[in-house]
Nucleic acid binder design. Structure first.
Lengths: 121, 121
DNA sequence: TTTGAAAATGACAACCATTTCCATTTCTGC
DNA sequence: GCAGAAATGGAAATGGTTGTCATTTTCAAA
């Protein structure tokens, strides 16, 4: 793990939720951590590839990131306030595997997100 | 409904699925329909506000649109050659709705894609 | 310790979807 | 036909994200 990767992870822990790359960059700057915006983006790309961090999208298309546990799960996200609930997705795993099998695909993976408006909004 | 709104709706029908604003603009140009990109964007904004069209996001953040009431389906995509199969997703609809309900969310929507390697690759 | 190649870094420029601006054209009611 | 409102579209601006490339750091081998 590069020095920057660690810094970005720490920043993500500190904000404790979603943050865009630009927001993380600001947090780090405020904390006297010298780091370039480009490096933040690169560190995030690596972390996402390593599955240490989740990548989602705000409604306006901006990428937002957050720490993610190891277990494969899905998210229910409020389109308004960003509140997030982790959802068990066994049904989806089976559906993806079955659909892939039926069409002769192998190395099946999938993505799935649910969004809506939460009870507080 | 403005003239442009009609053209954009027709284009959406013609492509029969998801399309980005830029793709729709291309489709219209190819069909000898003179229309500006700006106008396509404006028409889409209006159609989304009217709930005639759904707005979703590609993985890269680009906005994609589809007619409301279109049969909602999902895609099985080959990571290697791009071959795509349309998948029925009733299971997912129910899963998304149920998960949303359980946590008090309303206006539930979802995205789901399956990817893998097809039999030809 | 020195060295040299590979990886990491960051300022800056490039990219591209989307929006804003504004001048021109088209529509609508009178 | 006329005036005002709405629609249109080309050009420029915006803003998140990625590419470029020269410089710095890391680190293992000599």
């Amino acid at each position: 793990m590069s020095k920057s990767g660690t810094k970005v992870l720490n920043a993500l822990e500190r904000v404790g939720g979603f943050a865009s790359a630009q927001e993380l960059h600001l947090v780090l700057k405020r904390n006297q951590e010298s780091i370039g915006l480009t490096t933040v983006y690169r560190a995030l790309q690596t972390l996402v590839a390593d599955k240490s961090v989740d990548l989602l999208r705000r409604e306006d298309g901006e990428a937002i990131y957050r720490l993610c546990g190891d277990a494969h799960h899905h998210h229910l996200v409020c389109k308004n306030c960003g509140k997030t609930v982790e959802i068990e997705g066994g049904v989806i795993e089976k559906w993806a595997q079955k659909s892939g099998d039926e069409h002769g695909f192998r190395d099946i993976g999938h993505t799935a997100e649910i969004f809506g408006i939460c009870s507080d909004c």
